[in-house]
Design a protein around this nucleic acid. Structure first.
Lengths: 188, 188
DNA sequence: AGAGAAAGCTACTGCAATTAGCTTTTGGGC
DNA sequence: GCCCAAAAGCTAATTGCAGTAGCTTTCTCT
């Protein structure tokens, strides 16, 4: 019988497909095994177990997002850059609603995720540097941006907003709120 | 042998204690049974199953929070009220960090949760009415407040902010951002 | 061709949820 | 005080998934 030719990357691919199609709760080793055409225990040849698979999936999501954000903010500054960043963040959630639920809670604790998490934070910090923010002030501002963006994204991904008004409009309101609330330095 | 005298409320109590002590992942029927001194299948006499228990726990959390928020916002208006509301929300998370993880994702979908969820939203809407906001504008503003507050709370509860700067200060920054970003009507 | 690593597989264990069906307590009406 | 039905428990059994052990097959490199 021919070999499946699995790799750890392919396992993550299957896991992501499963999550996209059936939601985060559908991520089980049994389901991944079925989808990759392999017996469940064979997965352990590529992945240490379910917790590690979750971590790898989370890493992939952060990676994808970092790539998008970096591109979005490129070549813009200050309010333009902030708005672009925030829109790009939400667009990921809109494109992959189930994926956002596996975004790691606390990537800064996990040695394997710290690099990517830092890269993600760096994108925000870079934008804020355009406002002349540094040190503690920059950290507080970063946290505010993260909180606003993550809060909206996770509520939207979970379907937590009731129906009715247009979500795009709500988000533009949030962007305006953040942009207007960022400490202004005199600057150029 | 004497009877345990369990009620559905007591089961929820035990579940919450478990979550507070060992985190949301520790909520299993087996653990609740052990803690209440009963065999696992006996719990089904009081609760339909694990999903329902989760729902009831989520309901209790929303209830507690609604009570706190209502009290906090009482007797204040506009920026004072907004700040009080936001501080009270976060204080719940600080007091019960694990609890926030079981806050229902989408309470508006579940008929059993809709009432309490609405009560919670009403607190925010009431504060915003103080700014003269109504209709669509009020909804967009409510979503922004929810997003900011929920984002910060869930990141903090998950330990998602790196160490270093003081979180209280960050949160005050967020409050200032929200307050300054709320649409102003001429008003009193 | 042949050796050893890598990738699979089957069989098994353990744990948690859930169901079925039996037993015992308890509270109310006679 | 006694009887009975409902409620509250229990034990036993099933299912589904995670994870482990140890065997077999396929590659790959020489």
């Amino acid at each position: 019988m021919p070999r499946a030719g699995l790799t750890s990357g392919a396992v993550v691919d299957a896991a992501l497909a499963l999550i996209d199609e059936e939601g985060p709760a559908a991520l089980t080793l049994a389901a991944v095994a079925a989808r990759t055409g392999v017996a469940a225990p064979s997965l352990y040849k590529h992945v240490r177990g379910l917790p590690e698979l979750r971590r790898l999936v989370g890493l992939r999501v952060m990676d994808d997002m970092a790539a998008r954000l970096g591109t979005a903010a490129m070549g813009q500054s200050r309010d333009e850059a902030t708005a672009a960043l925030m829109r790009a963040w939400r667009s990921y959630v809109v494109d992959f609603p189930h994926r956002y639920a596996v975004f790691p809670d606390n990537p800064l604790i996990d040695p394997g995720l710290v690099d990517t998490a830092t890269r993600l934070l760096e994108v925000i910090l870079a934008v804020l540097r355009g406002y002349g923010l540094e040190g503690a002030e920059a950290i507080h501002a970063t946290r505010c941006v993260r909180a606003a963006v993550h809060g909206f994204a996770s509520l939207e991904a979970a379907g937590g907003f009731g129906l009715g008004e247009d979500l795009d409009t709500s988000y533009e309101t949030l962007i305006a709120m953040v942009v207007s609330g960022l400490p202004r330095s005199p600057a150029s």
